[in-house]
């Protein structure tokens, strides 16, 4: 497995992003936000709810172009970006497999997906419609879609919200398994510190709105060693550095 994103890291430099509310009041969502994600690295954007994490992601995904600043996406793989949204956003009128294949470029459209479905435990559900899946399974299908595209970078926007803790935990492990099979530069947005400490190589800690980078937390520990007690240690380490964040 060759790592994707060999050419360049993700560079983000957003000088300002504002919203205009219905009453005409201007709200500054982001100001002077800049950070980098190294190639092949799993990074987390950690910040309090409403600090502009999702806004940042929408800008990087090209869904919001009304901002000042610039960003540079990594290259490699299929040279595409992939996203796992807060909701699965599967097309209800297409089967799981059709949903995944639809996201693929013409070159990959007919590629072998057996292994990917197997890792995610979706092998027997390829021909089901999304309405027949539980939320956890739908989230897995959304993960399958993102990884199937062999992206240069993967964006995840709180992909484990509104799941019970057991299902969320199982999904985090599945995410790690599928990520290990093809390490991809990834940026995940979350407000859950333990989740970030479990998954990330580095955590980019954001301030409340307007979001700025407070600092970087390096999770030095190898992923397979991050069991419950180790996570507790990491949490207290984190709080030593960032006393009042999150």
């Amino acid at each position: 497995m060759q790592p994707a994103g060999v050419a360049a890291p993700l560079k983000v430099d957003i000088s300002e992003k504002t919203f205009r509310s219905a009453e005409g009041v201007t709200i500054v969502a982001l100001r002077g936000l800049s950070f980098e994600v190294r190639q092949g690295e799993f990074a987390c954007l950690l910040g309090p709810s409403g600090c502009g994490k999702t806004t940042t992601l929408r800008i990087l995904l090209g869904l919001d172009r009304q901002f000042s600043g610039s960003y540079q996406l990594p290259e490699g793989g299929s040279n595409r970006v992939a996203a796992v949204f807060q909701e699965p956003v599967l097309l209800p009128w297409r089967t799981v497999e059709q949903n995944v294949r639809l996201a693929l470029s013409a070159r990959l459209r007919h590629k072998d997906l057996d292994r990917l479905f197997e890792i995610l435990g979706l092998s027997s559900m390829r021909s089901l419609y999304p309405s027949e899946l539980s939320l956890g399974l739908a989230r897995r299908a959304a993960l399958a879609r993102a990884f199937a595209t062999e992206p240069a970078i993967l964006f995840l926007d709180e992909p484990f919200t509104s799941l019970d803790e057991r299902t969320a935990d199982r999904l985090r492990r599945l995410l790690m398994a599928v990520w290990a099979a093809r390490p991809t530069t990834a940026l995940m947005v979350t407000h859950n510190l333990r989740e970030a400490l479990l998954l990330a190589d580095r955590i980019i800690v954001l301030s409340p709105r307007p979001a700025q980078v407070l600092g970087i937390f390096e999770v030095g520990l190898s992923r397979h060693l991050r069991d419950a007690p180790a996570l507790d240690n990491l949490v207290s380490d984190f709080h030593k550095t960032f006393a009042d964040a999150v």
């Binding site: 995904l61 090209g62 869904l63 595409r80 970006v81 949204f85 097309l91 639809l102 996201a103 470029s105």
Partner: peptide
């Protein structure tokens, strides 16, 4: 609009967009 955004991110072609979304 969520489906349209999904189509943008995954770069669906015009034809695919009309047919599947």
């Amino acid at each position: 609009h969520r489906y349209a955004e999904m189509a943008t991110v995954y770069r669906l072609g015009q034809l695919d967009y009309v047919r599947h979304i």
